[in-house]
Design a protein around this nucleic acid. Structure first.
Lengths: 332, 332
DNA sequence: GTGAAAGCGCTAACAC
DNA sequence: GTGTTAGCGCTTTCAC
């Protein structure tokens, strides 16, 4: 099935079919109707490859996620699928680790498939990656950390507000002794979350001493190691804020091991949650970063750039999902 | 950058470049070298859209996953990415629910992008979906349940062996009283797992009465509701085999709520595990269905069909990952 | 408002 | 073994 068959069936020229299929205003409404009807009857959809070839626009956006095991990203991919398709784009999913071969392969796919723009949703893109991406000169949007180059824009997550929501919730429950388990602070996303936590704590008049901040490993090990350090001190805070959901899951895990009951003995709160927060025991109170919001912001920034060459910085809000891992502080 | 520029720079014709880039054996090795070198220097990669257009092969395979929240699928996508790229294919990720609009959108993407073949990794493809896919006449491979139509092949998971591994492990620990929490039995994948469980139980001489089989809801609710039914009886088995990992997580959740200690009071074992099994407390002993194996089998079936038009049935083995949710039966 | 024709980057058939 | 050329399905001038 191709444009010629449709043209023939609708008794018009291929150009008219092309124009009708692209909703050009210049085509006679009655004829356009006829073309659409014929196209539907023949199950005709324009060949994307041909379209891309002649127009120079592939209508393809790349979404780059970390090659790390984290259920948040399946939700992100789905959100992207949703949003991109709605905007008339197809998506190319690429996962990268900080490994030059993987990075090269990713760049190869972007080049060969003529991806028009890339959303880098790794939260902490490594320089090895961003450098190569800059070389390709493809418009890109980054979450959290945006390297500076032409065509690079950013989606910022409102961590300040997120940390505020978390601390307001804890403060309202009566917590004053709150620890923060952070991922490695060399990672910009971890650093911003810590800064946001500090700021929010100050706002709510909560003292945060150096001993309340635990810098730890990435991902789940952060939570395990972080909780361990807290346990080793012999005196737990009444609440623990974790830099990520996986971190919180790790903390939950380690606390269970130590027979510390959550939330009775200590409240735990996560960040950037996914479906996982529902599956833990107890289920996890968490500051959610909505995948759909992230996808929308990224696609919107990308489309804006593709259409008007104007970089824009998009912001994404967070919202607090209160589940069962937080409650009033234990009696002293 | 295009083939002409490379041809010019390498002082050969475009056809020679084309042949060299496609590793045709007819091209003079010295010249091929020169072409490759030039291509590398110019960062040339053949335009996939042009290639697809002229050759009639898009080198695109679709991977269809359920629009359900399950971390297993992020691992599957990654495995597909790996395997497909290695075989020279690009992947198009599509998630579907049993909703005619979503299905139509998915079919539209497959058609417009001229996807050559589709791997349906939903485990339980609905008829509404398979019917539409058959209409498209695109070669397809299904996990677990394959509708019969030309070009449809199957990847079968060796549940018999999987269930055998689970029961051997439990039997070796001394369990004789083992319950099975199943998903809805109208779903073929749930049904096959139950059959495999029964068969394996018989093999190990373990009696399975009707009261040991709990048919339940899908996903995590299965485990919650299933564990609840078991708890309501007042007498727990010594071990529970769950039809899926999410089901097992649900069971773990409900048991924790009831202050039943796993594995001290009851052992729990999952099926089709993902990274999640590591994150639960206790971590989950599980019969894993390796995503890479699944992806390899699917891509291999698809490639086989595309090259030789010969449908093949691929088999994927399972392996038991022993973690902390299983131990010897409690003292009576 | 519509049609004819050029051409996007590539592969493959054919000539040499 | 290599070059010339037609044409994949489409969009987009340019005439009319």
């Amino acid at each position: 099935m191709n444009i010629r068959a449709v043209a023939q069936a609708a008794r018009v020229s291929v150009s008219t079919v092309s124009r009708a299929m692209n909703y050009k205003p210049t085509v006679n409404p009655a004829i356009a109707q006829r073309v659409w009807k014929t196209a539907r009857e023949l199950n005709y959809l324009p060949n994307q490859q041909a379209r891309a070839l002649v127009s120079g626009h592939s209508r393809l956006i790349g979404i780059v996620i970390p090659e790390r095991t984290d259920p948040f990203f399946i939700e992100l991919i789905r959100a992207f699928e949703e949003v991109a398709i709605d905007s008339g784009f197809e998506i190319l999913v690429a996962s990268v680790s900080n490994d030059s071969e993987r990075i090269a392969r990713c760049m190869g796919r972007i080049t060969a498939s003529h991806v028009e723009a890339v959303a880098v949703m790794t939260f902490d893109a490594e320089e090895a990656f961003t450098d190569r991406l800059r070389d390709l000169a493809v418009p890109a949007v980054f979450v959290d950390t945006a390297p500076e180059f032409a065509g690079a824009t950013a989606v910022r997550i409102d961590y300040d507000n997120g940390a505020g929501q978390a601390l307001q919730h804890l403060a309202a429950l009566g917590h004053r002794d709150i620890a923060f388990i952070s991922g490695p602070l060399r990672l910009p996303s971890a650093a911003s979350r810590l800064i946001a936590f500090r700021k929010a704590a100050q706002e709510f008049g909560i003292h945060v001493g150096a001993e309340q901040i635990i810098e730890s490993d990435p991902a789940m090990r952060a939570g395990i190691a972080g909780a361990e350090k807290l346990l080793a001190r012999g005196r737990l805070p009444t609440a623990i804020v974790c830099s990520s959901e996986t971190c919180a899951i790790g903390a939950l895990y380690r606390l269970s091991q130590a027979c510390i009951r959550v939330p009775d003995n200590v409240s735990v709160i996560g960040f950037d949650g996914s479906c996982m927060g529902d599956m833990t025991f107890p289920s996890l109170t968490s500051v959610q970063v909505p995948p759909l919001g992230l996808a929308r912001a990224a696609v919107s920034a990308l489309c804006g750039f593709l259409e008007r060459r104007s970089p824009s910085i998009e912001r994404v809000g967070t919202h607090l999902v209160v589940r069962q891992s937080t409650t009033v502080p234990r009696a002293r």
